[in-house]
Design a protein around this nucleic acid. Sequence first.
DNA 1: ACACGGTTTGCACGCGCGTGCAATATTCTG
DNA 2: CAGAATATTGCACGCGCGTGCAAACCGTGT
Lengths: 352, 352
Amino acid sequence: MAVKKTSTKRAALRRTGPARHKSFVSAEQVAERAGVSRSAVSRTFTPGASVSEDTRRRVMRAATELGYHVNHLARGLMRRSTGIVCLIVADVESPQTARMVRAITTRLQSVGKVAMMINISDPRDDAADALRQTLNYRADATVVMSGTPSQAIVRSCLDNGQRLILISRDDKIAGPHNIRLDNAAAARLAFAAFIRAGCRRLAVINSNLGTPSLTAREYAFVAQARAAKFEVTVIREGGMTSYENGLIAARRLFSAEQRPDGVFCVNDLLACGAMDVARKEFGLRVPEDVSFIGFDNMRQADWLSYGLTTFDQPVEEIADNVAALATENGTRRQPARVEILPKMVWRSSVRI
Amino acid sequence: MAVKKTSTKRAALRRTGPARHKSFVSAEQVAERAGVSRSAVSRTFTPGASVSEDTRRRVMRAATELGYHVNHLARGLMRRSTGIVCLIVADVESPQTARMVRAITTRLQSVGKVAMMINISDPRDDAADALRQTLNYRADATVVMSGTPSQAIVRSCLDNGQRLILISRDDKIAGPHNIRLDNAAAARLAFAAFIRAGCRRLAVINSNLGTPSLTAREYAFVAQARAAKFEVTVIREGGMTSYENGLIAARRLFSAEQRPDGVFCVNDLLACGAMDVARKEFGLRVPEDVSFIGFDNMRQADWLSYGLTTFDQPVEEIADNVAALATENGTRRQPARVEILPKMVWRSSVRI
DNA sequence: ACACGGTTTGCACGCGCGTGCAATATTCTG
DNA sequence: CAGAATATTGCACGCGCGTGCAAACCGTGT
């Protein structure tokens, strides 16, 4: 009884106290108004708990009248799970990344999670600061889409029981789940497509970023071509795989004596830039004079001005995997390794 | 002394107990290892608190050894602020939205906040579910970039003392902060530009979305043109202001007997679609045969294939305002009303 | 030796919530 | 109608943390 009294006093104090600062409604205030114990309020908002229909109604009424909303932070303190999933990303503005973010956040919401987004400025960053944030907010899982986390911080996440999902991080890091694309296989398909189209002077456009997955595309293409006794010009331009660097790279490429007739770009942004230079600045026709193949299948690849043949990153499938890994509860022995073969999307930038 | 003992026992139990489930390290475990009280640990991680250099070092050592990370959720329970800012968005994949999201999340991080992203499926949604999430996580502030929140849920947020920032929501909602663009002024500038270019047959391309800001652009343009005795064709196509709807709208527009020679598109995506159709499907030259003006200044507007004259949404300035409003602590009497005049960006899609 | 001012430390409480346990209310069975 | 079985409720504790308060400590001056 004494306890009840003090609690009532506290609640009353909050409403009329000197602080007067607007504050969130607590379960205790709802309980007081509904004339029940605080437990009853908790149980009303806990699916499967034992509450009579009568008290549930009274609680709900009081809750809506007061504008009560369960505090997920406090709830996360009790339950094992906070419902938060962190997304670590370097370039949300890039069309492909945005596409992936959309797919993942939407999918996560549909399984009752909420996405927290953490930007890192440099894709080559080790993302340590970002992962620390992740730990600070006790995220159920962390999805790393950019950056190459160091072994130390990865260990820290894993030791704390946090699920870690790496997307397209081809580095050899032990522990976390991994979702990757078969970049090499795609690059070999690209080479085959150029040969079938009759291309003889091949080129690759990449950036100096040095991300493993981008490098894998370049290397596999070059290796396959060299094995078939083809010359390949490799151009790496700038620090990001941006449209602008595609422009610059193409200018260098087409200013050379021997102009290539088949250009593999490690992503679509570079490809769009390169195609624009080929057409607007060198008067070349695509695909008659030069063929292009990109990677990602970003929305713009399908625009009339480009019609870019490319490889689709199946973002929905990736999102499904992320959601599954983020919500699974049974502790598995082995980290998952999902490998997806990107499908080639034929458009009009390669001769047939 | 007795209390100390039980707490020690608890900590020991956690490490070797039967649960064996990996769990996060708590301040108590750090305290035990460092041989200090838990308060000392708290104070070590609280800037400005009184801790001697000696204990601070010992705490830090124990913390890194154990892999301790302050639980921001529990901290948010005590402090007034959780550090979370919610972003409510409908179409993260749209280039302009992605651009804004990048600017805002980056800016928020630089002032010590972290962004939580909530997707809503339909921009016409009232975003009630999303705002409830916001309240559940006790976000310090909520930024609404899409959707038109109903007065009821807005009230609920405000009553709970949550800051609410609306971006480009021109609806008349009382209470929240508002950051908007002067759409009407921009539209009038567009009209003036067309006239100076010698355009006589004007048109507007819009969607059926009916978002107030989009509608404002259309209406202001039409009103200005009518006032100057010009005919204006208005085409509204589809439910979203997408590239694809730009294609469809332009096909209708240029199939008419009287082809327009100046087209104002309420955003850049529509404009790119429309330009592509004009050039590829109707063989028109831009800007010789027809001029285009868009809105947003998304990255693609500057691509060689488009060179679109448009109005810049100053995302950095908007992000600055958001960060300022999200962090201010003094309770202000009046909600802020920021109005920004978008600057015209001249490229090559309008004759000069 | 003592007093005094300043710094550091530990205790204890509360933030808002979920949940095991025992007490109580309700329904069912014979 | 008694007694058992079940459904509901309240109590009390703990989740991990910040912080006011008083005790303990340290150095200096007399």
